[in-house]
Every structure is written in structure tokens, then in C-alpha cells.
């Protein structure tokens, strides 16, 4: 067995592992084993099971994450290599994440 064959087998194994992880996560999300009820909810530290109302900053962060990740994947497939990420996009994510983090640490959720 020569080196290119070994590299191909290794690559196939890595692809299979990554896709298996992705499929398992998706399966559990789909059938409710991984619960997403509190994904965009304001958590109350006093009662972690009570999710409360929806959080705008979490929702915004979720939207930006999906759009940036989706576009990054799409453009990388189209160009055949990893595309560069401008500082402005990182700033965008930073502003959104910073607001989310500030609300997590600074403001208690309303009753």
C-alpha cells in the first residue's frame, strides 16, 4: 500500500467520523433527546429549569452564527479553499456576542 492510498483511507475515515458525529447530533435534536427549548430563553440562575421569556440578544446571536457559518461553508465549497474572514465580520460577531455576554453577566432577568 503506497502513501497516497494511505492518505485517502485516512481522509475517508476522518470524513466518516465527522459525518457520524453530525448525524448523531442531528438525530438527537430531531427526536428531542437534545432539548432546544431554552436555546433563546433568558435563563434564571435561581431556577435553571424555568426558561422564562425569549432573549433578543440570543436570537440575534443565533441568526448571525447561522448566516456567517452558512456563507463561510458555501463560499469555501465554491472557491475550493477556505475563504478569508474580514475583520468587519469578526466585529459583527463580537458586537452581537458582547451584547449577549453583557446581558448574561450584568442584568438579572425580569420576574
Amino acid at each position: 500500500m503506497n502513501a497516497p492510498d494511505l492518505a485517502l483511507i485516512g481522509f475517508v475515515a476522518i470524513v466518516a467520523i465527522i459525518l457520524a458525529f453530525a448525524a448523531i447530533v442531528l438525530w438527537h435534536v430531531l427526536w428531542g433527546t437534545i432539548k432546544l427549548d431554552g436555546l433563546i430563553a433568558e435563563l434564571n440562575p435561581a431556577s435553571p429549569d424555568d426558561f422564562g421569556k425569549a432573549s433578543l440578544s440570543r436570537f440575534q446571536f443565533l441568526l448571525f452564527t447561522f448566516v456567517v457559518a452558512g456563507l463561510f461553508l458555501l463560499l469555501s465549497i465554491e472557491t475550493g479553499a477556505f475563504v478569508s474572514i474580514p475583520g468587519d465580520v469578526l466585529g459583527l460577531m463580537g458586537i452581537s456576542g458582547g451584547t449577549f455576554r453583557r446581558l448574561q453577566g450584568g442584568v438579572e432577568p425580569s420576574e
Binding site: 433578543l56 440578544s57 456567517v68 463561510f72 475563504v83 468587519d88 459583527l92 458586537i95 452581537s96 451584547t99
Partner: peptide, 22 residues
């Protein structure tokens, strides 16, 4: 071969908007 550039003004707008919300 890059993610779209975002104008500085739009970043300031988003920062101001989030600051107002906060």
C-alpha cells in the same frame, strides 16, 4: 474569495442599536 465586507457605518449602526437595547 472572502466573506462579504461590512461597511464601518453598518457596524457602528449595529453597535449603537445593541447599546440602545442594552
Amino acid at each position: 474569495r472572502s466573506l462579504p465586507d461590512i461597511p464601518q457605518a453598518l457596524l457602528v449602526l449595529l453597535g449603537g442599536s445593541n447599546g440602545l437595547y442594552l
